[in-house]
Amino acid sequence: MTLALKTEALAKRFPAGRRLLGGPRTFVHAVRPVTLEVRQGETLGVVGESGCGKSTLARMLVGLLAPSEGRIEIEGRALDKADPVAFGKLIQYVFQDPQSSLNPRKTIRAILEAPLRNLHGMGRAARETRIAELLAAVNLREEFLDRYPHEFSGGQAQRIGIARALAATPRILVLDEPVSALDVSVQAQVLNLLADLKAEFGLTYIFISHDLAVVEAVSDRIAVLYFGSVVEEGPAERVFARPRHPYTQLLARSAPAVGRPLAPGGEGELPDPLDPPPGCAFAGRCPKATDICRHTAPALRPIEGDQLAACHQPL
């Protein structure tokens, strides 16, 4: 199977505590070197809590943010410079908040035309036909074209956001929390639409969310991010059912589910990003942590088959 997307040691650090003259005092490592492979036609779920670097990773993947280190390859082509125009035809982004991702002063037509005109240089007639196709694909009526974003509900606005991403005819869609701003009944509609579009256009998805159940329902494989690093990666049916990293286990146990008693997974929160611990970032919250965990950061390694975990003492 061919690879749709590959990252090699992709990392991003932001300067923090800038001095008056000279360089920054220190760096915050938002994303530590991440190596990922996404196969053609696959959905890779990326799970993590706030501050784990999942949005930074997504913005690097679509070229909105230049990586500090590492490289991105899409369908075998290396994209060295963070340039949304070069990335745009191959990979597109669907935003979390559908309302704020649509310019309030532009009609839906103007929003959908932008990628057709700028990325593909289409003429007026070609754009008309393409827009009609796009609207049909996301189940919206053509009469919506001359309206403004505030006239739409969250679910409709997200469909417009998806249509805009599709307009560029990308091979890959990065979906950054695409349903977390929506009500549950609408959430299911959008998830099903995404599944249909994937089949129809042969797309590859990178689906980012904090909602484990949603990710499990849509993904082939899942990567769990903690404190900027991938701590576990594996087939969707196994990652939460049989977690290997204690953090994944904590996540899976914390997810509220009907018919399961409350099980608080220990106290504690993320470490301070300005003063990261030397060893495993999870050691401070981990019930199994030993000396080696506190001193040496574990590398991501295969535990069983294609299930990988970055842990000195996997479960």
Partner: peptide, 19 residues
């Protein structure tokens, strides 16, 4: 239509329309 952890990959029975 709410996905539940452990139910695996599936299509969700969405409610059509809006409140």
């Amino acid at each position: 239509c709410v996905p539940e952890l452990g139910a695996g990959r599936r299509r969700l029975p969405a409610i059509p329309g809006l409140p």
